[in-house]
Design a protein around this nucleic acid. Structure first.
Lengths: 238, 238
DNA sequence: GAGATTATGGCACTCAGTACCCTCTGTAAA
DNA sequence: TTTACAGAGGGTACTGAGTGCCATAATCTC
């Protein structure tokens, strides 16, 4: 049932867009009552990320099982669980990525999901480091670093359309974190296989909205570079 | 007007809680029409964070002005701008913190705000590091570290009830990040996409008076609240 | 003061999300 | 077979956020 609803929802989101799809549309396609949708998903957004809850549980279980002397390494391995979930369904992951990028509500929702992963990792590190001194601080900073590195590698793969193996990019990214924060027992071989992404700020045609108008706010004496920056910021709203 | 609405809203949120307060309640207390609320705030959540937009603008301006050889240090200083905003209103900050902790919707909203700061910092670092190689990766990881460290120190102060100076905790936290990610050897930005600061047309502009011009960036269908936010952000840059 | 522009209020609407109650279906006991 | 019960799903009506449209008042321009 959950599966049926999630699939119907995702199809419709791809066809008409997230915001132009109502819950009534979804339940109509799924052939169930409207009330049933909210029995399985607390909100419309949740239907887009039906698998994160179990992934989070898997990560928690993994972390409670590991018992090595390298907490940073363990946390990196935990992050790879998430990666695997994405890699298991390349097509779905890429489609969802594109959908999420252009729907502010989904972006925000995703942030809250990522935050929960991050807090899980931080909690594990805090246990290992101890609360006192800078334990909590280090735990949070390292967890944030790991998540950022993981997401950087993952996004690279998603933007490429899900071609190839995302593990290489993520491994490379996590290696950087381990190099810096890790304990001395971090066997890492930085191979020169770093994929080079294209320029992120195509000054024109950033998204494709044709009939957009950009107006610009500036003071009389505003230097040119600031104007450029503001326009970039406006365009980069994606 | 914005101020009146924000204050009325915050009062009510403290009295009855966020979710038990409707927009009608807010506009009733503020003595304005319901429609006006949404002219100044895109959502109920925004009324809780009325100052982040201008703070983000301030940070952007700061980063575009610094031109030193220590990008990580610059980004840490940029984070301190946010801290100062909180420290300027200890009572409000602490009340808002408590409110935010116990309202999931506000927590999620705050995440999206924090994310924008992080992206601003990452963008600056990316410009300095260059896109190629691990530039983007390092930029994102360092930005995440700085944000995590900053927030760790800030939360310490907020949880203490806003007593004393939050700068010490944040400075300590940021020092840890700087220690680790500290100034890269010397490969200062190889003049990639860094816009050369072209000479601003009028030489003056600092002490300027009333004859300012405000230009505004917006899309065709931009709602009023967004325009207001941007203008407020621009005006607050003094 | 005529005409245009802007700010605000009012009204009606869509839609997400919730509360409450209904109907089925299956099962087990009498 | 009837009755009792339980649980999954369906239906209806409601609240409240957010939006579009139009009317009105204030302000600005000529």
């Amino acid at each position: 049932m959950r599966e049926v609803l999630a699939q119907a929802a995702f199809q419709l989101f791809l066809e008409r867009g997230f915001e132009r799809t109502t819950v009534d549309d979804i339940v109509a396609r799924a052939g169930v009552g409207r009330r049933s949708f909210f029995r399985y998903f607390p909100s419309k957004e949740d239907a887009v990320f039906p698998d994160h809850e179990s992934c989070l549980a898997e990560m928690t279980e993994f972390l409670s099982a590991v018992d090595d002397g390298d907490p940073v390494g363990a946390v990196c391995d935990a992050a790879r669980i998430v990666l695997r979930m994405y890699a298991d369904n390349p097509e779905f992951s890429v489609q969802r990525y594109r959908l999420t990028r252009e729907v502010p509500g989904l972006r925000t929702y995703e942030l809250s999901v990522v935050r929960r992963y991050e807090q899980t990792l931080a909690g594990h590190l805090r246990n290992r480091f101890g609360e006192g001194g800078d334990g909590a601080l280090r735990a949070e900073v390292i967890a944030a670093s790991v998540v950022a590195a993981h997401n950087n590698g993952l996004r690279l793969w998603l933007r490429s359309g899900g071609e190839g193996d995302p593990e290489v990019a993520v491994d490379h990214a996590l290696a950087l974190v381990r190099e810096v924060w890790g304990s001395p027992s971090a066997p890492v071989a930085p191979a020169a296989a770093t994929p080079a992404p294209a320029a992120p700020f195509p000054a024109s045609g950033g998204g494709g909205g044709e009939d957009e108008v950009i107006v610009m706010v500036a003071r009389k004496g505003t230097p040119m570079w600031r104007v450029v920056q503001q326009i970039e910021a406006a365009v980069a709203e994606n």
